[in-house]
């Protein structure tokens, strides 16, 4: 097709799908946090990086393997999120949005600077778990098992989150608290606790994405810094209104980026920003957003 070998086309598509699953998991977390706390969590990229580092520490210091890290690292990152929310973010209630952004930006600098101090800018290798090495020959392309796992697993996590928020009674309470926290408190529901746990859950998702990416993109202190800017534009394109929109735009934009790598590689790192600019021109409220 267009003189591009199918092999290259499909492997870039897969790469796009993988990036898309990180975009989806991160923008999902941002959307959930924004809904409850009215804060755009700039520290999301740094906490994603932390998830990968926790997995690396677990493996190299405690001998905990990938599967253990997949459970423990999000818990550690989530616990840190709970502490951050209880000690700092809670004090910002009622202030302008921008203070939340500035505070979490400061936190991102602290976390990133801390890891850079120890590990510089170089990457630490993290091996693919033995169960997922190798790959399948699909005829038209070679599919590495680990990459297939990342796509399937993150899609499952995203859909489970969607289900939990849209279809369960806990999710209904959460959505109600997003709409009108005072009224929900009057029903005897502990809204502050809910807000804390929401933040913890949102950043745990980022930590989980970090663990997933560790075997693919090495573990680097700055791995989240550039990613978060892309995720922000994903959020601008889709709007932070609904969970499903975050998932769909995340994956779709990852695929767009992968395709650009095939056809015009020079533009691959700006294509999402270009799409964002075009969306702002034709639909200022975002692709799926309602006019404010």
């Amino acid at each position: 097709m267009f003189g591009i070998p199918t092999q290259a086309l499909f492997s870039q598509l897969l790469l796009g799908l993988i990036n898309g699953s990180f975009y989806a998991m991160l923008s999902l977390g941002l959307a959930v946090i924004f809904g409850m706390l009215n804060i755009v969590n700039f520290a999301h990229g740094a906490l994603y990086m932390m998830g990968a580092f926790v997995a690396w520490f677990l493996l190299n210091w405690f001998g905990v393997n990938y599967w253990g890290a997949l459970v423990l690292a999000p818990l550690v990152v989530g616990a840190l999120g709970v502490v951050i929310e209880r000690t700092m973010l809670q004090r910002l209630a009622g202030l302008d949005h921008l203070y939340g952004l500035l505070l979490t930006f400061g936190l991102a600098l602290i976390i990133q600077g801390g890891f850079q101090n120890v590990y510089g800018s170089s990457g630490q290798p993290y091996a693919i778990p033995p169960q997922l090495t190798g790959g399948q020959n699909l005829g038209f392309m070679f599919l590495p098992n680990y990459r297939a796992w990342v796509v399937v697993f993150s899609l499952t996590v995203c859909l489970a989150t969607w289900f939990a928020i849209e279809k369960t009674s806990l999710g209904a309470k959460l959505r109600a608290a997003t709409e009108n926290p005072t009224l929900v408190r009057a029903f005897g529901i502990n809204v502050p606790l809910m807000i804390t746990l929401t933040y913890g859950f949102g950043v745990a998702l980022a930590g989980l994405a970090g663990v997933l990416s560790a075997p693919i993109n090495q573990v680097r202190p700055l791995m989240g810094a550039d990613l978060i800017i892309v995720v922000f534009s994903v959020v601008v394109i889709g709007g932070m209104g609904s969970i499903m929109v975050s998932i769909v735009t995340g994956f779709a934009l990852g695929i767009c980026e992968g395709l650009t790598k095939v056809f015009y590689p020079e533009a691959s790192n700006i294509v999402i920003f270009v799409i964002m600019a075009v969306v702002l021109l034709i639909k200022p409220a975002g692709l799926f957003g309602r006019a404010a």
Binding site: L92, Y99, L102, L103, G106, L109, G113, N117
Partner: peptide
């Protein structure tokens, strides 16, 4: 070195809080 970045982050947090 990177302590400067950490310092900047701390100043951000303190200023906002």
């Amino acid at each position: 070195g990177q302590w400067v970045t950490i310092m900047q982050g701390v100043i951000f947090v303190v200023c906002v809080l």
